[in-house]
């Protein structure tokens, strides 16, 4: 278990490094992929909702502390995302499991995230969904699938 935990910590650190160094260059307008969400979904898919929500909470909280955003907002949406990843992934075929889980979870995550971000501002739900959320979800899914194909062989999914 310790080894698996270390693997996930390593995965998180690599994700954090790329998120802070590479992703800013990938940003198109207001849309950018969320590699930390990809890590949370990855853990949730492999380990289930307990690990997923815990990883989401911890990673989200660290993300909040590293950024200037409201502390707890990232923890909230990412813990939900990790839980959903663990819950939804068994519904899909193994080969397309990660893709569909990431797609659905990203949608919920980004919707919640942008909703919290624009809370108290005069931004319509349509705008949140179609302008902020959906393009960002597709961007995260595209980058997330690339990351997934690179990482799936390296991270062990043996039972804890």
């Amino acid at each position: 278990m310790k080894r698996i935990l270390l693997q996930y910590v390593g995965l998180f650190l690599v994700g954090l490094l790329f998120q802070s160094t590479v992703v800013p260059y990938l940003q198109i307008g207001r849309w950018k992929p969320d590699l930390l969400l990809v890590v949370v979904v990855f853990i949730g898919v492999q380990r289930g909702p307990v690990w997923g929500s815990t990883a989401g909470f911890v990673i989200g909280l660290i993300g909040d502390l590293l950024s200037a955003q409201l502390v707890g907002s990232g923890a909230l949406v990412k813990s939900v995302a990790g839980y959903l990843a663990g819950r939804l992934s068994p519904l899909f075929d193994v080969r397309s499991q990660f893709l569909f889980t990431l797609l659905l979870v990203s949608f919920v995550h980004d919707l919640g995230y942008f909703f919290l971000l624009t809370l108290g501002q005069a931004v319509s739900l349509n705008r949140i969904v179609f302008v902020f959320t959906i393009p960002n979800v597709f961007y995260t899914v595209v980058v997330g699938m690339l990351v997934y194909f690179l990482l799936r062989g390296w991270i062990s999914n043996e039972p804890v």
Partner: peptide, 9 residues
């Protein structure tokens, strides 16, 4: 976790 998050917020 949700409760904790709201508490932090």
């Amino acid at each position: 976790y949700v409760g904790l998050s709201f508490f932090l917020m």
